[in-house]
Design a protein around this nucleic acid. Structure first.
Lengths: 120, 120
DNA sequence: GATATGCGCAACCAGGGGTTGCGCATCTGA
DNA sequence: TCAGATGCGCAACCCCTGGTTGCGCATATC
């Protein structure tokens, strides 16, 4: 019942800084390491490394424009990442519900047993 | 529109080994560092460290039983973690849909412009 | 009581996120 | 046109984390 997860994709969106970067890129359409770093508590170099990770994971594409490197989100791959989040979430949610159901069932049988005992 | 995420909780479930550990604990109800390590590609000590992280995040509880330390998942906290996954997922999904809508709108206005031009 | 089993602690290593420092390329304006 | 500003990449370094091995201690078990 374990959900198969693309570890590269998951670890890419697992980092909080990278999640904020994706947020920023989605909000503004595109951005550079420098522009992103202005809205983040880390340096341009750190952002550049993260952009490298996101690029290798296929979550962003880069377009050279003069001396700038403009990044934008790859919608399709991003959608895949969101789907993975959802998959793990729903799988765990389902498991939680099943456990709760079983627990309630056990509770009921115990109540029944206790009731039987009081009858004796 | 950024979703507020409990970073400790997220980073706890962000690690693939910890996710598999949670899976195992949920499947078996409870487990020890030794028993879990038998189903994982890492040593008991590594598992023990992860259990420490999960414990500090409130995702598991430990019960000493003789020389064993039995861990089980905290349903409530685990549900919170799942909820966070779902929250980020749905937020991003919504943003994707909005972008797609805007893109389509732009497409339509461009089509309209082109049509106008052909009319001239 | 001797042996096996489960655990914790400590030291160590590799990789990743972060920083600073530097040099190179591209823009821009006087 | 050329000098300064701007954007970027590369390299070295630090610290934390995930992982390992090695050890000793406590609890079961025969």
């Amino acid at each position: 019942m374990t959900v198969a997860v693309d570890d590269d994709l998951w670890s890419a969106i697992g980092d909080p800084t990278r999640r904020r970067m994706l947020d920023l890129l989605l909000a503004d359409g595109e951005g550079t390491a420098t522009s992103l770093s202005e809205h983040l508590p880390v340096t341009r170099q750190a952002v550049a490394k993260h952009l490298g990770v996101l690029d290798r994971a296929g979550l962003v594409h880069v377009t050279p424009a003069g001396r700038e490197m403009r990044y934008r989100v790859d919608d399709a791959q991003f959608a895949r990442a969101v789907a993975q989040l959802a998959a793990v979430g729903t799988a765990w949610d389902a498991r939680l519900r099943r456990i709760k159901r079983i627990a309630e069932a056990i509770q009921r049988t115990q109540d029944q047993t206790n009731q039987d005992k009081t009858k004796e």
